[in-house]
């Protein structure tokens, strides 16, 4: 912020954003956000392959404005698509921190929800929802692409209802 001048009101973009959150304009912003949920292609396990299939020709999530992106800087949604290990967790946090807000997390598959078949392993991290603010859980091992699409639609509904954890209301 620059120097204060008398009789002139300064503002910041976060102040504007905070103000807008209280007005109906946020509905329009959310409508725009929910229709451009770009997700990060970050395959980690079996579910990662299904995630790739979902973004491609046959299932074509483009219909809902959901486009796979390769860079965390360009993505709104990160799909945790597999077993998070102790070694990978710091990298995953870094990827999450690199994403610009507003951002959302979808937990895809049993492994990321509760450890799945590897819940007893010495190398994996359980209870991801205590580490990341997860909006949608998609059970299955692996979930079918249809389930992933439904997960995205649930996220869209949450955003529209202003109940998502990803945005700070």
């Amino acid at each position: 912020m620059g120097e204060m001048i008398e009789n002139v009101n300064f503002t910041t973009s976060s102040a504007i954003s905070d103000f807008l959150k209280k007005t109906p304009a946020q509905d329009i912003i959310n409508w725009g956000r929910k229709n451009s949920l770009w997700f990060l292609t970050q395959p980690m396990g079996c579910c990662g392959v299904e995630m790739i299939s979902t973004g491609c020709s046959h299932y074509d999530t483009d219909r809902f404005g959901i486009i796979p992106r390769d860079s965390p800087r360009q993505a709104d949604v990160i799909v945790i698509s597999g077993y998070v290990t102790k070694k990978y967790l710091p990298a995953l946090k870094l990827v999450w921190d690199q994403m610009p807000a507003p951002k959302w997390i979808i937990c895809m598959g049993d492994c990321s929800i509760s450890g799945g078949p590897f819940y007893e392993s010495y190398s994996t991290v359980q209870n991801i929802d205590e580490i990341f603010p997860v909006d949608v859980f998609i059970p299955g091992c692996p979930p079918r692409p249809e389930a992933l699409i439904q997960g995205f639609i649930e996220l869209q509904k949450k955003i529209m209802a202003k109940k998502d954890i990803g945005t700070d209301y």
Partner: peptide, 24 residues
């Protein structure tokens, strides 16, 4: 980065349960 310890898990599952783990 995605080492899951499958060999240890297989040692602790019955043979029939093991088939499911080998898928992954």
């Amino acid at each position: 980065y995605i080492h899951k310890g499958i060999e240890k898990i297989l040692e602790n599952k019955t043979y029939l349960q093991g088939i499911t783990i080998t898928d992954r």
